[in-house]
């Protein structure tokens, strides 16, 4: 007996929802950043699952590119966090309001 596709999609949906909850309730910029990584990963799981169940390599190639973009995003995002901390001495979302109207 094998694991059907629906199970993988359900796990992926659960991980994505947990990532969304994390983004909404946490205020530490770095933790919010990690929640975004979690959401990216849950989408990757969906793509790999579809790729394996449909026998199509396009999904796995897309996951490869998502990983490259995530690495670039991590580098730039963490550089922004460092620049922010240097200017405001905080990584708390509620204290960062220079773009708030």
């Amino acid at each position: 007996m094998a694991v059907p596709l629906t199970y993988y999609l359900a796990l992926s949906a659960a991980l994505f929802a947990i990532g969304v909850i994390g983004v909404l309730i946490r205020r530490n910029v770095i933790v919010v950043f990690m929640c975004i990584e979690l959401m990216l990963n849950s989408v990757n799981l969906t793509l790999v699952a579809f790729s394996a169940f449909l026998g199509d390599i396009a999904g796995q190639a897309l996951v490869f590119f998502v990983m490259a973009v995530a690495a670039a995003e991590a580098a730039v995002g963490l550089a922004i966090v460092i620049a922010l901390y240097r200017n405001k001495q905080t990584v708390n979302f509620d204290d960062i309001n220079i773009l708030k109207w």
């Binding site: 796990l11 990963n41 995530a70 991590a74």
Partner: peptide
């Protein structure tokens, strides 16, 4: 490990090397 269950060997290795390795070390 789930990628390995889906027979995606290369992505399983990249997941550990790029995500658990590079990105999380940066974080």
């Amino acid at each position: 490990a789930l990628y390995l269950m889906l027979r995606a060997q290369l992505l399983a290795v990249l997941q550990i090397a790029v995500y658990a390795g590079a990105i999380m070390v940066l974080v």
